[in-house]
Every structure is written in C-alpha cells, then in structure tokens.
C-alpha cells in the first residue's frame, strides 16, 4: 500500500514517526503551514518557519525515503493579529519556490472580517501563481463556516476544481461535494473523522471517489501519523479494492497537488556523500552512470 499523506505537520513530529510512516507505506506527504501551537508575534517568525518547510524538513523527510512538499500561507488564526499581516506581502517570493504545491492552509477559524480579507487575498495569490489552494474548514460552527468559505471561493479567481476543502465530516460533505471542490477528510484518534466513519462516507459518496483525499493532519495534539494507513486497512476490510485504496491514498493527492506542476515524487538520496559521489554533471564524469553511481 503506497500512501501520500496530503496534510501532516511534520515539523511537530519525531524521526520515529518518519520511520513508522515509511514502514506503513508513506512515500510522499504535503506539509501545510500553520501556527506554532501558540500565537506568533512577528512576521519574521513565519519566514524562518517557511524556510524550514523548504529546507530542513524536506531534508529530514528524504532521509527517511519520503518526498516532502509544502503549502504556504498566513493561517486563519493568525490572520487576526495585525502584527502578522505583513506576511501577506512577503508570500509572493515564497510562492514561486519549487517545493510549494499549493497556497494553504487558508480559510476560517473564528469567521472574522480579518479572516475574510486574508482568505480572499490568498485565493487571489493562488490564482496569480498557478497554484491550487488548501482550504481549512473551521472546527467550530463548521457548517456555517463552510457556507461562508464557499461564498468567498465562488467570488475568487480560483476555479473550484483547484480548491481542496479540508476537515470535512458527515455534516459538511454534501455541500462540499455540490461545490465542485476536492474533498479532504482528517482522521484523528478522538476528534474529526475516524477510519470506520471515513469508510461509510466513501461508500455513500462512491461516485466522488476520484476527488476524495484522506489525511492524518497530525501535529502536536493527540493525533496519529499512521491514520492514513488505518483508513486503507478499513477500506480493504469493508470490501474496497486495492485500486480503490490506491486512488484515495495515492493518486488523488498526487492529482490535486500535481495541479501545481511542481510535484516531484522522486526522493533525493541524502546519504552523506551520495550527491557528491553521484555528481557526475558537476564533476564532468560520463553522464550515463549519473543516477546510479551514488545510490
């Protein structure tokens, strides 16, 4: 079972998690930018974080055989702090980077006017940079939050088939499906969705299975980076085929983030010296052995 976790905050996870994820079949992931567990107080704190999502964290993931990409944005929660708003002006220089495959997570937290502005501005940034958008739906007042989210999406320059609505559940899946957006579900030990409920949604919405994504959304809270695998197992136990599992856990996230034109699922060899030894182009060695020499 090959797994692509389309939403996981690896910066808050350990190397043990990376090992366990690889063993469970995870070969690719996308790490959306979010808060730090407590509020930031300055834009510079975002920039160091974005740099880590484009530098250290992909290196860490590659050491464990996992391809790492990210989505960048000013998150909804911190869009409410005027001290953090200058991030919106710096985002364009980040959104051109190779490792960035969407704008996100954007959306609503407490549904404030400041969040309206940040969401609209960042949907426009996604359209300007040829990127899709990962849109978080609020945990509190979710159904109303989804309706307000869809209003802003419809007013934006971004077509709904380039928008992934995340953290959906039984109460929001119908409206989300009707919107034409991609459908994301986060599987948690206690809150959000669980594997068996996910399987019921997949059954009920079988005709939409080409645009359903499942993620662990694992972070510092009580969460589990192997929840994607658990969904795959629950699907097989419920009679879904290997191909169904592959579609939901691999091909759909690859298709959605592939809309960026920047997804590269080959994992760079990070064994110290591998790049150096394999650097036939930079060293002027014969080109035919370049990819295998250092591996």
């Amino acid at each position: 079972m090959r797994i692509f976790d389309p939403h996981i905050h690896m910066t808050s996870r350990t190397t043990d998690d990376y090992e366990a994820m690889y063993a469970a079949g995870v070969r690719a992931l996308v790490e959306p930018s979010f808060w730090l567990g407590q509020p930031r107080t300055s834009p510079a704190s975002f920039y160091d974080y974005f740099d880590a999502l484009l530098g250290w964290e992909p290196f860490r993931a590659a050491q464990h055989g996992i391809a790492h990409h990210c989505t960048l944005a000013l998150n909804p929660k911190e869009a409410n702090d005027p001290r953090c708003l200058p991030v919106l002006d710096e985002l364009p220089r980040y959104l051109v980077k190779d490792g960035v495959v969407a704008v996100g997570e954007i959306g609503y937290d407490a549904m404030t006017p400041a969040e309206d502005t940040a969401l609209a501005a960042q949907l426009q940034l996604a359209a300007d940079h040829g990127l899709p958008a990962l849109v978080h739906t609020p945990h509190r007042d979710k159904a109303a939050g989804l309706a307000r989210t869809l209003d802003v999406v419809h007013e934006s320059a971004l077509p709904t088939d380039r928008v992934l609505l995340d953290h959906l559940n039984e109460t929001t899946v119908r409206a989300a499906t009707d919107s034409g957006c991609w459908l994301g579900f986060s599987i948690y030990p206690d809150t959000k969705m669980d594997p068996d409920r996910m399987v019921r949604v997949l059954r009920e919405y079988a005709t939409e299975k080409h645009r359903i994504l499942v993620n662990s959304a694992a972070d510092w809270g009580r969460s589990d980076p192997l929840k994607t695998r658990h969904v795959g197992e629950a699907m097989l136990a419920a009679g879904f085929t290997d191909d169904d599992v592959d579609q939901v856990l691999w091909r759909n996230p690859a298709a959605f983030y592939g809309l960026s034109g920047r997804l590269d699922l080959d994992v760079e060899d990070t064994t110290p010296g591998a790049t150096h030894k394999g650097n036939s182009i930079l060293r002027g060695a014969p080109v035919t052995t370049a990819t295998t020499e250092g591996r």
């Binding site: 051109v96 190779d98 920047r262 590269d264 994992v267 760079e268 650097n279 930079l282 370049a290």
Partner: peptide, 22 residues
C-alpha cells in the same frame, strides 16, 4: 531570479538531482 527559483521544476531534480544545481 524567477528562473533560478523554478529551475527544478523545469530540470526535474528527481531524475538527476544535480541537474537543478548545475
């Protein structure tokens, strides 16, 4: 500078990791 940032998605880094560097 935009091409400098976008080099890897034009010269796929996975197939030849050093191509984007070069």
């Amino acid at each position: 500078e935009a091409d400098f940032a976008a080099a890897a998605r034009h010269c796929r880094r996975g197939q030849h990791p050093e191509l984007a560097d070069a």
